[in-house]
């Protein structure tokens, strides 16, 4: 249940950014959540509904962009989608793989009034 503290962080970030822009109401919060970020989307949505009530995001909608797990092979340079958590290049079979996407856990954009 670390989603509760994650959602609190989301609201803190959103409220602080909204205030910086002199907004009084948050309409949408766009998140990017990677396949390997370790959070459960259902829990995020559930906690958001609970925690937003006494904030300027009380009517806000959460838009979640799911980011697939992809890697770049450090040997041959090819980019590919990592399936079943097998970090091995599907071109040259090397296992020195850098994660390119899929660990995202960030507030991407806001819509405010």
């Amino acid at each position: 249940m670390h989603e509760l503290s994650i959602v609190q962080n989301i609201l803190d970030i959103a409220e602080s950014e909204a205030r910086k822009n002199n907004a009084t109401k948050i309409i949408k919060i766009g998140l990017k959540i990677g396949e390997m970020s370790g959070v459960v989307i259902d829990s995020i949505n559930f906690c958001f509904e609970t925690l937003k009530t006494n904030t300027i995001a009380r009517d806000a909608e959460l838009l979640i962009d799911h980011v697939p797990l992809t890697g770049k092979c450090k040997n041959c340079g090819s980019n590919f989608q990592i399936k079943n958590y097998i970090f091995r290049c599907d071109t040259c079979n090397d296992n020195n793989i850098e994660i390119i996407s899929g660990k995202e856990l960030f507030v991407d954009e806001l819509e405010v009034e």
Binding site: I6, N9, I10, D12, I13, A14, E17, A18, N21, A23, L31, L105, F106, V107, D108, E109, L110, E111, V112, E113
Partner: peptide
Amino acid sequence: MKIKVVSNILKAND
């Protein structure tokens, strides 16, 4: 109004 944020949710912890 749209605001581009790109802020790591775990940055306070990090």
